[in-house]
Design a protein around this nucleic acid. Structure first.
Lengths: 344, 344
DNA sequence: CGATGCCAGGTAACCGGTTACTTCAGACGT
DNA sequence: ACGTCTGAAGTAACCGGTTACCTGGCATCG
């Protein structure tokens, strides 16, 4: 059996008895072609089941490039929801979209950015919290220039803007505002000793949320207790483990918990239950993100417009939007994980 | 400001004082090149920050194509987990991977398949339950042949094999086995009246799970009550709404629920709670899929190796695996949503 | 009736790489 | 000294499209 040579535009031209230029024009659209000719060509295309080669097209004509989103993992709702927004908006703009995952590995991130440059992607959207140090700034600035030189745009989501010179667009959530609001919610329910579970020093997302937490406390005249701020990665296991450690030290010296995100809250809740503490009767807790599992946990949390973030990133990349850095507002979602503390 | 003409291999050749062939060889790898020449070229590459054009490469040389996975939406853990498996395996195989979403629209599916043919994707992985009717078979068979003609492979996940002639690979979960096991679990806890929540006539996934449910009942000599099988889509809202409707009809005439998947279970549980029924004290319930939220619901469910499905699909597509149709085993995960029914 | 314009359609250069084939210089053999 | 072999590097064809430019036929116009 011989390999069935791929059908090219020349095969179509031969079959239709016209030149390749005519075929290209019929398929391309706007150039005037006689109806009879068009029909001949279309019939040949159909009979041969011809599919133009995207690579050849991309090579010869300047056509819209793909839109790429790079995340840690797609198996976590936070990223999946943002990715879905990107996907939708990209489709709407007639662009192909690529979703790439790094697994949190900087080496892989680098090779993915390289790959995307080779693909001549039109936009590269980098999502996710990072530790902003000198090394990071340098790396991003390099990406930004490299991509700009290749005609691609770089969009950072949930990361601070780079310096002046670097050609990067930025969009993120108002984490400080959201954290402030939800902390205020706890405070106005009478809570004064609020454990912040999920500090990650240097991480942008964590830092901004902690900032909101602190400013709300300050505003209500509650002194900040460093003992009430504990570290944890932003996943369920970390929340569970950290809460376990804390509860192993003795009975809780706090009445409410502000978890770094909903997954951390989920882990913490499991730990609380295992220690015989009920939510919200024995302990109040709030989360952050409002990912779908939060609903089942009856968790009061901060809703993030994930979808909109993705869409905004695409629109920024395509120049449909020009405000950068751009901040998307958040709002609190009250469910049933906070109990008012009676006056003592 | 002039557009900074893209750096091509000829620019590098000129700068290094060699021919383009030499540059290509240095970058390509195996051809013998003098160390001195190699150095000159590499320096030029670095100084110009040259990035080869993936499209041009794909056009001239036969290189590995991308691996594409097509799902309804990425914002649902079931798909996200599978997609992550595909992504990981593809990366491991040195392939670029594309994640495409259809939103459940056949028209979009078609245009995505078309797009992937244009991209000369090496494999197209179609995931998700469908209604298997004549129209579907015809459509898939067309895809299969079209993709085969373009040298791509088609992999179907969670869908039945096509007829003999169609060149499609198949991999799926053992849904019937899993459903049988979890139903048997309920039966051996003493439950006899088990509501199946999530029938979707014609849908492959639903049908196979219902089949397991029925065979387990039969095995235990429990008569099938059509009144205990109610329809629902496979999402949270549908589970909630269907349960609400059922409970509105009067007090439950069943002691346990088998939900079509975990999201349906989540919705049902919310409805139960709102009707004052506690899980598992007043009502037992099991789910299916074992997606992350199931853990927070303390839901007994059937674990599916989502990740492995994605990986297997890629391996099948690349010919690393040859058993098709392939079935991945499942196992039950016991949590705390089922209560034994005391002897009456 | 010949010049002019218009329009459908053809010819061929080009996009940016890879690679089969060719060239050329130096090493080696007799 | 001369022919031969070897290995590094160059030349140019090719991948499969798009499009600037050219051609030839027909209608229009003075």
């Amino acid at each position: 059996m011989t390999t069935p040579r791929r059908v090219t535009i020349r095969d179509v031209a031969r079959k239709a008895g016209v030149s390749v230029a005519t075929v290209s024009r019929v398929l391309g659209g706007d150039y005037p072609v006689l109806a009879a000719t068009r029909n001949k060509v279309m019939r040949a295309v159909r009979e041969l089941d011809y599919v133009p080669n995207a690579h050849a097209r991309a090579l010869s004509a300047a056509r819209p490039g793909a839109i790429a989103i790079v995340v840690n993992t797609i198996a976590v709702p936070y990223y999946a929801l943002i990715a879905q927004g990107v996907e939708d908006q990209a489709a709407q703009e007639g662009r192909l979209s690529l979703i790439c995952t790094t697994g949190g590995d900087n080496g892989r991130e680098l090779s993915i950015v390289q790959l995307l440059r080779e693909q001549r992607a039109e936009a590269v959207i980098l999502v996710g919290s990072v530790i902003v140090d000198e090394e990071y700034r340098k790396r991003m600035t390099e990406y930004a220039h490299a991509l700009a030189a290749a005609g691609s745009r770089l969009v950072l989501c949930g990361r601070p803007p780079l310096g002046e010179g670097a050609p990067a667009l930025v969009v993120g959530f108002d984490n400080t505002g959201g954290a402030h609001a939800v902390t205020a919610h706890l405070l106005s329910a009478g809570h004064r000793r609020i454990l912040y579970l999920g500090v990650r020093p240097g991480h942008t997302t964590s830092d901004t949320r902690v900032a909101g937490y602190r400013s709300a406390l300050a505003e209500h005249g509650v002194a900040l207790d460093p003992g009430l701020q504990i570290e944890a990665e932003f996943d369920r296991d970390a929340g569970y483990a950290a809460m376990n450690r804390r509860l192993a030290e003795g009975p809780p010296d706090f009445t409410a918990i502000f978890a770094g995100n909903d997954l951390v809250a989920a882990g913490a809740i499991q730990s609380l239950h295992e220690h015989g503490l009920r939510v919200p009767d024995d302990m109040s807790i709030v989360g952050y993100d409002d990912v779908p599992p939060a609903q089942d946990l009856h968790l009061t949390t901060v809703h993030l417009p994930h979808d909109e973030l993705g869409r905004a990133a695409v629109r920024l990349a395509l120049g449909r939007l020009t405000t950068s850095p751009m901040t998307l507002g958040t709002h609190i979602v009250v469910r049933d994980s906070v109990r008012p503390l009676g006056p003592r």
